[in-house]
Amino acid sequence: MSSLSKLIRNENMKIYRRPRTWIMIAFLLLTVALLSGLMNWESYRNPSTDWEQGLIQVNSSMQQELQNNQELNGDQKKQLTEQIKLNEYYLEQGINPRELSLWDYVNNSSSLIILVTILTVIIAADMIAAEFSWGTIKLLLIGPASRTKIMVSKYIATMGFALLLLLLCFGSAFAAGGILEGFDGLSQPLLSVNADGIVQESSMIVDVLQKYGFAVISLIMYVTMAFMISSAFRSSSMAIAFSLLFMLVGNTVTMLLSSYSWVKYLLFANIDLTRYLEGSSPLRPEMTLSFSILMLAIYYLAFQFIAWLLFTKRDVAG
């Protein structure tokens, strides 16, 4: 009888022995390099030698805005006062906020998780469907491993690939930031204004990991969906097409339909948990963080159950 770890090794072999996988990885690394290069070039083009003067100017204009503009609402006022406080702190401590540090690169790389998601969706879409198109499914299933075990091994291998891409994305952005701006920015804290109106320092890495974390939630959902479609239709092109379609239009469609209350039960209305962070609002007023987490959990379990049912219970003929 096959052990799960050996089956996962087999699935990994099928992923990483294909040249295509390495092209994807190279593509991701290239994108990170390109993004970092652009950031560096941009800051090089606009050198901020007289940044202190600039900050003083910005602050005074914001002060004026606060005093003179009657149309500002509470949130906007709060934002402006906080920004002024931060700027004053920068001037006191002699920190140039526009000077890039290593963490800016890593922070920006979190926007590339959408690319990581797309690449992992392509792999996930192929996991089950490709065995059918290669004709290897029969030999795979006629073996001392239950279908459930085979499916679990495939899912774990897919998630392993996602994890690898995430680490590469983070690592390469970190390396690029370090090379371009020096690794001394590592200890730089994240400055923010807390509820009492006092500027406080917090850990950069926690902030970056939080950004990654929110993006990973949608990654997991879309990849699991692609995996399910792959299992249901046994066709990788269908799985890729549907998953990407949902990724691209899901948000827009839910926005358009947001006046209907049933929209809150859609996956796309719940997938972006950053809506519950300070400064943004959920799609519908009655939605809460725990509601969204519950909905995501239900969707996740449903995807897994359908994928499992369709993979283990159907006959393999022809």
């Binding site: 099928k14 022995r17 294909r18 040249p19 290669w134 004709g135 029969k138 030999l139 006629i142």
Partner: peptide
């Protein structure tokens, strides 16, 4: 088992 033409992983 050998089922029809044995299809193997061609990239291996």
């Amino acid at each position: 088992a050998i089922v029809e033409n044995p299809e193997m992983y061609k990239f291996l």
